[in-house]
Design a protein around this nucleic acid. Structure first.
Lengths: 225, 225
DNA sequence: CGTGTGCGTTAAATATTGTTAAATATAATC
DNA sequence: GATTATATTTAACAATATTTAACGCACACG
């Protein structure tokens, strides 16, 4: 379950937010000042922080800065009064991921939370170690393609290309994009090299009829599962 | 490049939006009434529609409905005045993907546009697409047309064109619309290329008397089932 | 009817991709 | 550092995909 830290001194708003987020399947710990919120952060594990800028004892920026000293990546969304829009810059400088001005739509807040979580997930998401391609298993780290008792060692380029195809499974992998990523160049000659590797990968995967690398003429390739 | 259709009668807002979106790397065609916007949609190819509800000549809902008759999937965001929040339901019923109430933050709008485009992209990725054409089955991802034990591999262009025809089955598929989508252009020479592909598709489908690709003189083609 | 334009079809021309093998570069071993 | 082994690129040719060209017919419109 996704856990949210909420730092908000207004009792009505805090309660409202906590209940709304609960309804949307987020588990929220609500603190009514910066001091206790920081204590809470140290003891807990949170996927996202929702911090009001104006708070007694320790304001939102101070809290965010403290949080950053012990965690560089947790997303922070600031809640700020509309009149204080200059604060926004300050907020981003501290490393906030978004801000939202009061009064705000609950729906809009939810929207931003989900967008940020999605983004963070994609960022941090260590490229999965393994991909399952029909009866094959592709071990990215070890560069191995195996099924049953057969093991095929892949070369670096083979592995990098297959990895990119897997990341974009059922989607077009653009020729130029792949070339620039793997070959750091996209001239005509290098492009032919990529074709050679496509042939190799197809050969490795030929025993699995549900997996296919199809060409999209003039644009790139698609790994269809 | 991502193309946006903007239908907005307010000259200031329209201009502002167009420039803002341009700065954010979206190419925007701006129409100031529903009538011309629909003309524009028919002739062009758009990734997303941004439609003001209150417009002269043809209001936003009517426009969206007309767009839906020729395209079932393009995302639509409605712009609506805050006082008319009841309209929201109407908008979703028509098949809008989001709505945003005026006055709104440019940033919020951008946020929603990006979120929807991301979602649409992910959707398409996983829904396996098959069309049933009489005794044939058309597998869009794998670009295959099969019946019984016969399998016909389709080329990229063949497949893209057949897909568009299927999406608009029993409806007119406009020449220009298809050309801009598949060929990213609609000059005279490319148009002949499309005719060649129509001939090819007819040849593939000739064994099924209930399926026919008929020509609508001067307008386009229609896949009749 | 006759004329201009659009469409159907086929075949040739061009561009892109598939495949294999040889040449070169890189790494591993001694 | 020379010698293998392995990885990658280059080259050459075959196979496909796409576009262009050509010709004849169909349709709209006067």
């Amino acid at each position: 379950m996704t856990k949210i830290l909420l730092a908000e001194d207004d009792e009505n708003l805090g309660d409202l937010l906590k209940n709304y987020l609960k309804a949307k399947m987020f588990e929220t710990d609500w603190f009514d000042n910066g001091e206790s919120a920081f204590e809470g952060f140290r003891k807990g594990r949170y996927d996202l922080c929702l911090i009001d800028v104006m708070m007694p004892v320790k304001d939102g920026f101070a809290l965010a800065q403290e949080i950053r000293t012990i965690n560089k990546s947790v997303p922070v969304i600031f809640l700020t009064a509309r009149s204080m829009k200059e604060d926004v810059l300050e907020g981003f400088k501290i490393g906030g991921d978004d801000y939202i001005t009061k009064p705000f739509d609950m729906e809009e807040l939810l929207f931003r939370i989900e967008a940020i979580l999605r983004r963070v997930k994609n960022d941090n998401q260590f490229t999965p170690q393994y991909y399952t391609l029909g009866k094959y298993t592709f071990d990215v780290q070890k560069q191995l393609l195996q099924y049953d008792n057969t093991v095929q060692k892949l070369t670096t380029k083979e592995s990098e290309l297959l990895k990119m195809l897997c990341e974009n499974a059922n989607q077009l992998l653009e020729r130029n994009y792949a070339l620039k990523s793997i070959w750091a160049d996209d001239n005509m000659w290098v492009a032919r090299s990529m074709d050679v590797y496509i042939t190799k990968l197809r050969k490795y995967l030929k025993d699995e009829p549900n997996i296919e690398i199809i060409n999209v003429h003039g644009r790139g390739f698609k790994l269809v599962i």
